[in-house]
Every structure is written in structure tokens, then in C-alpha cells.
Design a protein around this nucleic acid. Sequence first.
DNA 1: TTTGCCATACATGTATGGTAGACTATCAAA
DNA 2: TTTGATAGTCTACCATACATGTATGGCAAA
Lengths: 237, 237
Amino acid sequence: MQVTAKIQQPSPRAFQHIEPVSISTQLYRHLRGAVIRGELHPGQALSESEIARQYSTSRQPVREAFIKLAEERLVIILPQRGTFVVKISVADVLDARFVREAIEVAVAQEAATSAQPTAIKELRNLIEQQKAVEHGHNEEFLALDEEFHRTIALSVGRAHAWRVIENIKAQMDRIRYLSLDDATPLPLIIEQHTRIVDGIEAGDPTTAAAATRSHLREITVSLPNIAARFPDLFESD
Amino acid sequence: MQVTAKIQQPSPRAFQHIEPVSISTQLYRHLRGAVIRGELHPGQALSESEIARQYSTSRQPVREAFIKLAEERLVIILPQRGTFVVKISVADVLDARFVREAIEVAVAQEAATSAQPTAIKELRNLIEQQKAVEHGHNEEFLALDEEFHRTIALSVGRAHAWRVIENIKAQMDRIRYLSLDDATPLPLIIEQHTRIVDGIEAGDPTTAAAATRSHLREITVSLPNIAARFPDLFESD
DNA sequence: TTTGCCATACATGTATGGTAGACTATCAAA
DNA sequence: TTTGATAGTCTACCATACATGTATGGCAAA
């Protein structure tokens, strides 16, 4: 007799495959990075066929990459007119920052009450790596910075929360790349990171929250200056 | 002599057009609603060609609608295998709820300090409409519920925050549609809404925050029961 | 000079055919 | 009974052609 497993649907396998990254996904990642790093300028027109030529592919994968970028508000698709890198909006960045603060503060509080020692060790380690970044290697620092924040979120199992933050960060990182040299000094950022971990390790949600809050408010200081320095890259709002 | 306006980029017009909604966008909205309402069952396979036939269009718009749904984690696209309505994951819903609480609590606090009287009037009005919903017309109530939360966010200019919540809500609403009849009683929800507005009107961020928090925690009570009642619709995690 | 029409080029949107990979059913061999 | 090979059929992915709306420059008329 056969045990008939009730297969209600041709549902996806539990096993994961080594995902073959499609062309459209590769394009998406590539273009996303270029927009965030400012290599593609806010306001610049992107052409499906032009990019298809550049990457020796057809328009379709490019088009699908555009759709994903548009979902993330990094480009805007105007039907029958063109696709453009969205200009940065001061109001939008501040709104995004607000959301990020709300989420990360909540995550920090949670971490302070339930983070494992291994996670704290990992965070300390990341801070050491941040200290070791040589002057001028800002991109390297940005990667470590992102990993720091991600580690906190994942340490308390908040993968979804991190996914949301990841999108929001894209908008904020565009600002950081504009002011790589004269933004908040790295030692100050590192000190703020240290205070956050201190709060978490001490099991003190209030301190961890406050440290996270003040850390994430740095951008509100530099943003107006940057907007004034690069008026062409910003929405006139 | 001609005044040459410096047109630096072929940037998009400031004027908005009446957007001609593309087929792929229509499909996206349609399918999104169907997934949230549970008309398309978690785990169910969707086929590009099948849906294209149903809506008398080609596969391409369907495909692009799928991509947007996948970005929202409502479907999962497995290359060369199929596209499936994602099963509901208890852990994911709880994680989404966590994020939503973080954002909406922050918004409520802000509203308590800076909401305009017209906004409060609008909120009171929405509550009255909620009271007027006849027994059994739950979909109508859900729409008013969504408008209530959106109104709070927009009253303090947090459009971006609302956009994030809108995505998150999709996951949570799938649960609500599963338990339309025996979920939290409507009068209780209305009372919670009232407490939130009371806090906002009183200019008391602490009360507004607390009211929002407990309101958004309702789902944690009903979720386990629902998951136990519809095991097929949930990820086994 | 200004205005309005129109040809042209270019944009995204849609339709369709082909390809490679993944699953299933079938059947032969052990 | 179990295993393995294979043909057939499904899928998403990509390439290409066509449809349709938009921007623009030239040119004739006012």
C-alpha cells in the first residue's frame, strides 16, 4: 500500500537551487549600484535600447530591470517618453530617514533585550574593521557600515525589517556618495556605533535606542548643505 | 538676443499627464487584489500563458505584472519552473507586523504633536463611517480601516512611510481575509481607533503611541489560531 | 517673427517565436 | 520491485518585430 502524500498543488520544492542569475537581475543590480553611487546622474535619461546595446543583450531584460528600479523609486518610467534617474528630493530623504529611524530604533531595543553574545562579538569585530579602514577608502567603510546595521537586525531575526531598511537606505546612500569626503567624520560614526553596541551589550534598551536615534539623525545636518551644493541633482521642492 | 535657459537634461516634465494605465499595470492591480483576498490560494501555481489567455493579452504584460508581485513577495518566481502564490509564513507576518508597529507608532507620536484640526475631524468622520458599516460587510470595513491609518500618516506628511506600510499591510491583510467573520470584533477595533484619535487630539504622544501599539498587536492573538485552521495555506515553518 | 502642420526619430508597450532548463510519465533493464 | 534512461511537456527567459504615443526640427503660411 502506498502512502499518498496529499500533493495539493505543484508547489515549489523545499530544496533551494543554486540560482542561475538571469540577465535582467544582473542588469538590475548593476544599474542599482550605478544610480546609488551617482555614476548615473539624477535626471539623466536612460534608454532601453541604448543600455541593451551596451550590454549586448535585448531590450527585454533591460526593461525588466527598469521595472524593478522603478518599484524602488530609483528611476521613473514615463510611458512613451522615457526612463529617467529620479532626482533626489530633500523631503523624500527626510521621510525615508524617519521611517528608518523608527524601524532601527525598535530593532535596537529588541537587540538590547535578546541579542546573543556571538552577535555582540560580531558587532565589535565589525567596529574594529571599521577602525582599520584607511583614510580615503570610503566605499569600503560604507560596506562595513551597512553590514553593521544589517547584523543588528538579523541578530534578532528581523530579516523583513532589514529588507525594508535596505530599500530606504538606497535613497540615503545616494546622499552619502555625494559627500564622501566631507560628511560626518568616520571616527565619530565609529564612536556612535560603539555606543549602540554598548547599549545592546548592557541590555539597556533605552540607551541602545537613544544611541541609534542620534546616529541616524546625522544626515539631517549635512543634507541641506549637500542639496545647496548640488542643486541640479535635487528635485526643486 | 536670446535668453538661453540652461536645459541641462532631457528631464521629465513637471506637468502630470492623465496616465494611460498599461495592461501590465492593470493586471498587477487585479492579481494583487486577488492574492490578498485569497481568491488565488497560497501555493497555487500561476502560469504566464494561462493568465494571458484569460485576459486576452500576450504573455509579456503578465510577466511584468508577475515581476511587480514578486517584488512585493506576493508571488515567487522560480526560473524554468513556475510562478506561485507564496504561502503565508507566520514568522514573516509577525516580522512585518513588527515593522508596521514601529512605523505607525512613530507616526502617531508625530501626529499627536503636530496634526491639524481638519485631520482630526476627518479621522472622527472615518470612525463614524466605520460604526455605520452593517454587520457582515467586512470588506467595506477593511477599506475604511485602511483609509483611517493612511489618513493619520498623510496628516503629518509621511507619504513615504505610508507607502512602506501599504506593502506590509498586504501580508497582514491576507490574514484578515482568512478570518473575516471571527476576527477581532468590529466594535473593539472602532474603540481602539477612537483611543488613538483621542490621544492625537489631546496632543499626548505617549497615549497615542500606546493606543496604536495595542491596536496593532491584535493580530498576534488571532494568527496562531488561523494558522492552525488553514495549515495548507501556511508555510510549514 | 510667429504660428501651425508634418515628417522623422525615438520612447515605451505589446505580441510572438524560439531556447534551455525542470518536471513527469513511460518503459526497459537489473 | 527498483532503478535508470528517455521522450514529451511544461515553465520562465530572451530576442525580435510591430504598435503607438511623444519630442523635435524643418518648412510653409500668416
